[in-house]
Design a protein around this nucleic acid. Structure first.
Length: 426
RNA sequence: GGAGAGCUGGCCGAGUUGGUCGAAGGCGCUUGACUCGAAAUCAAGUGUGCUCGCAAGGGUACCGCAGGUUCGAAUCCUGCGCUCUCCGCCA
């Protein structure tokens, strides 16, 4: 959420932001709602002030056993006017709030301008793609041959875009998650195991609602939503809190399953583990002060990259342009891993500084020592990494001509020393 | 699921014959005094949002949430939420 004061004082800035994001919203409607609202506030509060003074005098008269009926009648009239104004004020504030909840975060000045994903910037490329003396297979071809994936049974049990992992496939998933958590906790991130179901307020705070309701699985009986990412519960851990400046930054890492309806992605990444309704992810999350958040974004991104480096997977870092960035982000780096079977780079992590956007929605502040005043914190999140896509990348990069898959060295301790998954004996 | 108790400021905790209660007191915290320094002691200060104002400051709202009664509610009424205890059921 944006500060309405920012909108009042710097409409221009917000307009440019919307234009760069390729979003059309009429700000003048919002501003006139705000103007009307403030006008009514002044009116109604003057009346309330009068009422309070009168009531005090009525109390005084009654204690002195004098007649107060004239004043009581006066206040009665004031009250009629007050309840009328309060009514229209509530309506205005509701409308204003709904409008504000639909405004995206303002991109940082450093973010490249662009019209679509073609305008994203390549920041760096690391690792070298493996050389194959044969045509590398896709991870789903490998997985079915190894008998560690079963998509058909998953459709029977659930629906399309679900997967069953079997034997060494299930073990590899578990190994990847544990490995990632170990790396991050050793780096000082506190591990959190969050609820997978969250209430509507939490979804609004982190930015999923109201705009992206289509993307979420909802349990309507209970007003609870399956989390699309651990970012949602993590953002809300400190909702409605005022944190001591000295205890910032808070660093969290969290494994969770993630659930996404993938509405509107028909025909995209139909096969394999790239785009499924349920996947595992290890998330990185930070609460920071405003002045440190952009540095913290750099180190958060490096922390996610560390996993790819340790797994020796080739990847590149992309800075998203204004038009390709998510709703809540002010600046985003995507990590894209090389997938030889698909013959493309695929997003495996997205690291964002959300500045005070989520903090304002979630009402998360810290008390600045210098001023003694509360200010909104900054929140940052990043995948560290998406486990399913990591498994896919490992399989495609570590495949052998006969269809076997070598296990990256750092994962072997997590798989009882297994060095490879072999055809016929996974 | 059934029965009961409770939800007050960073924390603990007064306040339930409605009025001078944004709210006693304690703890904590900040500043100052004392001290070589610390502790102890003493003094003062110490919630948040909105709104008006250049500012100083003013107004208003908030005692779980939403309504209601009343000239006036933390205090009365209704509904909801949450926490705790006991019983039942259960991984």
């Amino acid at each position: 959420m944006l500060d309405i004061k920012l909108l009042r004082e710097n409409k221009e800035l917000v307009e440019v932001s919307l234009k760069n994001r390729n979003i059309k919203i009429d700000l003048s409607v919002i501003l006139s709602l705000d103007e009307e609202r403030r006008k009514i506030i002044q009116e109604v509060e003057a009346l309330k002030s009068a009422r309070n003074r009168q009531s005090e005098e009525i109390g005084k008269l009654k204690r002195e056993k004098q007649d107060a009926s004239v004043k009581m009648a006066e206040v009665g009239k004031i009250n009629e006017k007050i309840s009328e104004l309060d009514g229209s004020l509530a309506g205005l504030e509701k409308k204003l709030n709904e409008a504000l909840l639909l405004l995206p975060n303002i991109p940082d000045k450093s973010v490249p301008l662009g019209k679509d994903e073609k305008d994203n910037t390549l920041i760096r490329t690391l690792g070298s793609a493996p050389k194959f003396s044969f045509i590398p297979k896709t991870h789903w071809a490998l997985g079915e041959a190894l008998d560690i994936f079963d998509f058909e049974k998953a459709v029977k049990i659930a629906a399309s875009r679900f997967v069953i992992l079997k034997k060494a496939g299930a073990g590899l998933e578990r190994a990847i998650v544990n490995f990632m958590l170990d790396v991050h906790t050793k780096a000082g991130f506190t591990e959190i195991y969050p609820p997978y179901l969250v209430n509507g307020r939490s979804m609004q705070s982190s930015g999923q609602l109201p705009k992206f309701a289509d993307e979420a699985y909802k349990c309507s009986e209970d007003d609870l939503y399956l989390i699309p990412t651990a970012e949602v519960p993590l953002t809300n851990m400190h909702r409605d809190e005022i944190i001591n400046e000295d205890s910032l930054p808070y660093l969290y890492t969290s494994y969770s399953a993630c659930f996404r309806r993938e509405a509107g992605s028909y025909g995209k990444d139909l096969k394999g583990l790239i785009r499924v309704h349920q996947f595992d992810k290890v998330e990185l999350f930070k609460f920071t002060t405003p002045e440190t958040s952009f540095n913290e974004l750099e180190s958060l991104t490096l922390q996610a990259e560390e996993i790819l480096k340790l797994l020796k997977l080739p990847y590149r870092v992309i800075e998203l342009c204004t038009a390709d960035m998510g709703f809540v982000a002010a600046k985003t780096y995507d990590l894209e891993v090389w997938m030889p079977g698909i013959n493309a780079y695929k997003e495996i992590s997205s690291c964002s500084n959300c500045t005070d956007f989520q903090a304002r929605r979630a009402n998360i502040k810290f008390k600045r020592k210098a001023t003694g005043k509360p200010e909104f914190v900054h929140t940052l999140n990043g995948s560290g990494l998406a486990a399913g896509r990591t498994m896919a990348a490992i399989m495609e990069n570590y495949q052998q001509e006969n269809g076997d898959v070598i296990i990256p060295e750092v994962l072997r301790p997590y798989m009882g020393g297994t060095e490879k998954i072999s055809v016929g004996k996974a």
